[in-house]
Every structure is written in structure tokens, then in C-alpha cells.
Design a protein around this nucleic acid. Structure first.
Lengths: 357, 357
DNA sequence: AAGCGAAATGGTAGCGCTACCAAAATACCC
DNA sequence: GGGTATTTTGGTAGCGCTACCATTTCGCTT
């Protein structure tokens, strides 16, 4: 029909205002409705909501009134599209079945939610390719920032993230080659710390035990710290027991038994984390093996469980919840335009000596 | 200037195509760019991506080619605005420090992520008002559906959700008055189940112990089940120890001690969850109190820890991860237009009898 | 070969909001 | 009091995508 006129070269009809609720519009209350009721322009409503200090108190009040009368809830998607920013932070972790990450996420979530940001959850199962594609897809949400786990990522993903230009935090581990900001703990030092403790307690035949260490390279970094300390102490350190399965109490029990069987002369066991170490303590209890008299056990993390076992577990405690809070604070600082004192935060750790060593 | 012409009553200039990258456009690759390169209309690209079966294989291939050449990543926000649906499911739980919810979330997340949906995390700290405002704000993201915890919500929130018209699942507990869909476990039956077990083991003086039960009404439902069983068995049931603090191993230890002190004649303790029960077992270990000879201990949840303690913990196991998976599947069914066989899924439970009773 | 229905493709017009800039109102100064 | 600096308000034009419908193409029948 009007197909002859080459374009929209025509006057738009009744450009006025009325006939809302057209086409596909759900019957959602929009900023338009609020503006109409308050007798102002939509943009003023937008400002009253987002930057109230830029609107006179008179109008602000009238607008707030209208908002609550109508029960207006901003469409964050529309706002996000217009401003190219959604109030949302994806948090990408390797696994949701590992308590550590959960506790960090908890800290992040609590802090961000208070500030009006939502957390989008992603898990990669320790696969860098999956992480890369997950990152691509979450960037499709135009988030305000991104929180990733670790410093090792798919190369292409790193390139795209660097070009992205929004705040990015890498958590859990500490290093020099981070993309934008870094909050974590020095795994190497942590491993060394526990090893140092075991050595100083007089143990000589010390093994490091872990699971899934081909994927969890942070556990390998701790092992490296452990190894160096033993080397410097002139102790042998060929002993590294490992299994390729997720960490669990069960895995800790098995690892413990395997170690005892194949090397009955061992004096101390340094586990890659408290799940394993707790499993070992529980297996020892069951078998009547005295800890630390017959064999000492050390862990890493500071899981609350370790405190309640008998014997209670010596561990290197890392403030995981606080790590999340710190990461979130750093993120918020950047989002609010403040320049944080440092782009790198060492969350620290603490040797918690208890009964098992 | 042209301010005199009252409206947009004018021919749009060079309506053509070229000059992209205008105004505020970031230099993001858009569906336009892909369309240009593939020599098709943008809408065709959209279709090739969202409903590939509706595009000829020739074009589809060319489009896929262009997508990967340009590294196009769809802007989900724009798509979400246009279609009034973001591929995103908020999951609102009371707390992220309670392992139960975490495991359910894990199941949800894993299942939804596979299907290309992201999980948005929200926590309410057991506060129904906070839940209501959280619901309002997440609805601002135009999510595809919503997953909530429990069947009790702020009245206004329920009204708005019912009017919302998208899939809603309430998890954890089972009941008749749900908003849209319901996946969970019958808490009353669970409490009765453990009580029945304790009674059938010959215990007569049985106490129920919990924490924070004024907020966690599901624990109260279990207690109610417990109470009824004892009543029917002609046993006294005034004993209900409680503390107003979050559940933890620590709280379990304290509750255990308090119970023993004030009622040394008790024969069995029915704890509101495994965190408390495990704490009790560990305290018993520490004090050399024999379980179940001196006192029996039962829990609820089926935490993996319970299996490894000595004595191992008798508990009512609820498949939490599976509950999440089922909820997510139900959600996906509805999102994909399939009609699930039932809007209500009883995830079931299992009495796991171990050494502690 | 004409006719017809189905499948494939494209044009148009927003989704509801905010960036950008212009205009109006107000405050401020000598 | 007139003019300028500042604050407050508003108009316009998209953000990048998809719903809706029109159009074209194709396959198949008779």
C-alpha cells in the first residue's frame, strides 16, 4: 500500500499523549504514568528517583507521592538499556558445592544488595573455556561490574574484559597480573605458613595431601609454598598424595588411610583444605588413631567445623566472608566513582593452632 | 531553534543506514552489524539466533559465520526490554549462611544455567518485609520467572505476584496455598517421622531442640509433627529447648549441654537440623558422653557431615540438591510452554538410621 | 501454467528509560 | 535593575532488540 513512499516520510499522527496501553505494552505502570500524575516530565521523575538532589524538594515530594500512589516499580531493564548499565554484578566461581566460594559469595551478596546491586551467579566447574563463554554471556546483561575467581582465565576473555572498561575484581588469589582489581590471599604464603608450623613443631616426615589439584591450581600454589619450606629446612618432600575427585570429608578419610598405609612412618599430614583434614580427623577417631600423638593433621580455610572436632583442627584461617565484603566494597567504590586507595587488597590469613598438631 | 514546529512533524533526514556509532553508542557489535555483514535484515539475525528452525539453513549458516567473525554477543538487556523477558530467574532465600539453601540454589543454578538462564541471588534474612521489597525490585529486571522460599509472604507481594503472570515456584515447604507452583517437603511429616523413629526405638523422654524458631517457622512445623506423634504415643511433650540465634555447631553444643543439665533424665534429643545435632554429637564426644547409650540424638537434613561423625548421625534426609533441580525443571517446563504434570512436587524424604539412635 | 497455502524474509514501530542539550526559573552580583 | 552564573526543568532522540504484520518466495496441487 503506502509502500511507494520510500520511508517514513510522513507526519506522525496525533503525536500527542493519550492513547497509552498500545501494541504490546503490558499494563505496567511506567514513568510516564507517574509523570502525568505528578504533573511533570518523565525525565524529571527519572531524576527524582536516581539523583534526588538535582530536583527541587517540592517536585520531589509530589513525585514520591505519585510513585507510591501508583505503586510504580522502575523497569530496570529499560533503564539499563538506556544507560548501558544494569545494577547487577555477576559473580563467577568455579563451583557452588565448595563452601569457601559460598562464604565469599555471601559476603559479596550482602554488601552489594545493601547498596542496591543484585548478584548474578555463575559457575564454571573449573573449566576456563566455560568461564570464558559464561563471561561473554553475562556481559550481555550489561552489568555494572564483574567479579571473577582467580587470576587465570581464557586469553580471549581477558582481552575482552580489558577492553570492556568497567570494574572487574579477581578474588581468592593474589598476584601481579590482574585485569583491574584484585582481592585475595597469598596461597604460596599460606602453604608455607602451615609447613613452617609443622616443621617448628618438630615433625620431620610431612606429607601434603590434596584432591583435584590439576584443576584447583591454588592448592598447587599452597603446595609449592609447603615444598619450599621443607626444602629450606633440609627435609625431604617427595610426598604428595592426591586424588582426582572433589574435596569432601569422604575423600579426606580415604586420603588419610592411603597415606598411613603406604607410609606408616609419616608424622604429620598437611591437607589442602579443611574438608579433607576434617575427614581425616574423623577417620582417625573412628579407628582410634590418636591425633596428634600418632600423627598430626593440619588444614587450610578455618571451617567452623574444625573448631568443634575432637581433636580440634589446626588450620590456616582465611576470612572468606570478609574477602567477599572487601571485594564488594572495592567494587562499590569504583562504581560510585571513588578511587580506592589500592587496586589490590591482601585479605590476610592467620595460623590457628589447635589440638591436632 | 526549530522549536516552533510543534512536534516531530518533519521528514526524518537520511533515514538510510550508514552513520552508525552515533550519540552514546558504545562501539559494541550489534545485531545490525551482523545483519549487514550477512546481507540480511536484523530481524532475520534475531530469528537465526532465537528460533533457528524458522530460518533457512543457507541464511542461518551465513549469519552464524558473521556472528563469529564479528564476535557478536547479543545484548540481553535490549532483547529483554523488547520482549519483556530477561533470561534470568531470581532465587530469593532467607539466608546464604545456611547450607540447606545453598545446596538447593546449587541444584537450581546448575539446571538453569545449562538451559541458558542466569540465577539472580536475593536474601531476606527471614524478614517478610524485606522479602517483599526484594521481590518488587527483582521484578524490575523483568525476569522470566521467580523462585521463592516458603509459602508465607507479605500479603501485598503475593497479590502483585499473582497478577504478574509469569512462572513462580515456592520451594522448601509443601502446602495447598501456593501462588503458582510448589516444590518441597512436608515438614510436618518429617518431624513426625523422626519422632516416630525415636518412639519406636523405645525412648520415652524425648525433647525437641531448635534455634531461631520464631523466624524459621518450618522448624516449628516439624516440631508440630513431633508433638503429635508423642501425644498419640501417650508421651509427654512439654520439652522444647530453644535459643534465638542462628543454627550452628556451637549452638548445638550449647543446646545439648543445657538440655542435659536441666533434664538429666532425657533419653533422646530430636534436633531441628543436622547442624545442631552434629554440634551435639561433637560435644558428647568431647565430654565422653556415650551416644546413644546415655542419650540418643536425631537430626534433620542429611548433611554429609553426619555420616562421618562417630557415632554417625541418624537423620531425616531431604534431597536438597535434587529439590533445586526439580524446581528448576518445573520452571523450565513452564518457560518452554510445556504444561508440567503437576504444579506441586513432593520431593520426599528418607529416614536414615545410623549409630546415634 | 495457474492457483494456493505455507514458509521465509523484511519493514515498522515501539519496549521504558536516560543522555544530551536547550530552555526556563531562580539566585546572585555590582 | 539589568545582566550573568547557576540551578531546575523539559524536549528529543535513541539504547539494541523483538512483536506484529506485510510481503515475498517457494513448493505443491490440479
Amino acid at each position: 500500500m503506502a509502500k511507494t513512499t520510500p520511508g517514513r516520510a510522513m507526519v506522525k499522527q496525533n503525536s500527542g499523549a493519550r492513547e497509552r496501553r498500545r501494541h504490546r505494552g503490558s499494563d505496567r505502570v511506567t514513568i510516564q504514568d507517574v509523570a502525568l500524575l505528578a504533573g511533570v516530565a518523565p525525565i524529571t521523575v527519572s531524576r527524582a528517583l536516581n539523583t534526588p538532589e538535582r530536583v527541587s524538594s517540592k517536585l520531589r515530594e509530589r513525585i514520591e507521592q505519585a510513585v507510591s500512589t501508583l505503586g510504580y516499580v522502575p523497569n530496570l531493564v529499560a533503564g539499563g538499556l538506556a544507560s548501558a548499565k544494569m545494577r547487577m554484578i555477576p559473580v563467577v566461581v568455579p563451583s557452588l558445592s565448595i563452601l569457601t566460594f559460598i562464604e565469599v559469595i555471601h559476603g559479596i551478596q550482602q554488601t552489594l544488595e545493601e547498596a542496591g546491586y543484585q548478584v548474578l551467579l555463575g559457575s564454571t566447574d573449573f573449566d576456563l573455556d566455560r568461564e570464558a563463554s559464561l563471561i561473554d554471556s553475562v556481559l550481555g546483561y550489561s552489568p555494572s561490574g564483574v567479579i571473577l575467581t582467580g587470576l587465570r582465565h581464557h586469553e580471549g576473555a581477558v582481552r575482552r574484559l580489558k577492553a570492556w572498561g568497567h570494574p572487574i575484581i579477581e578474588i581468592m588469589e593474589l598476584g601481579d597480573e590482574f585485569i583491574d582489581m584484585n582481592v585475595g590471599v597469598d596461597n604460596h604464603a599460606v602453604g608455607a605458613c602451615m609447613a613452617q608450623h609443622l616443621v617448628s613443631q618438630g615433625f620431620r616426615r610431612i606429607a601434603y595431601l590434596g584432591t583435584g589439584m590439576s584443576r584447583d591450581y591454588r592448592a598447587m600454589q599452597r603446595f609449592e609454598g609447603h615444598r619450599q619450606v621443607l626444602e629450606q629446612a633440609g627435609l625431604e618432600c617427595e610426598v604428595l598424595f592426591r586424588r582426582e575427585e572433589p574435596s569432601s570429608y569422604q575423600a579426606g578419610r580415604r586420603l588419610f588411610l592411603e597415606a598411613l598405609e603406604s607410609r606408616p612412618d609419616l608424622e604429620a599430614l598437611h591437607f589442602a583444605n579443611d574438608n579433607l583434614a576434617a575427614g581425616a580427623v574423623m577417620e582417625a577417631n573412628r579407628r582410634g588413631i590418636r591425633v596428634p600423638e600418632e600423627i598430626a593433621i593440619g588444614g587450610y580455610l578455618g571451617l567452623s567445623l574444625g573448631e568443634h572436632l575432637t581433636p580440634s583442627l589446626t588450620t590456616v584461617t582465611v576470612p572468606r566472608f570478609e574477602m567477599g565484603v572487601e571485594a564488594a566494597k572495592l567494587m562499590l567504590a569504583r562504581l560510585e566513582g571513588r578511587t580506592p586507595p589500592s587496586a589490590k587488597v591482601d585479605i590476610g590469613y592467620e595460623l590457628t593452632v589447635r589440638e591436632s598438631t
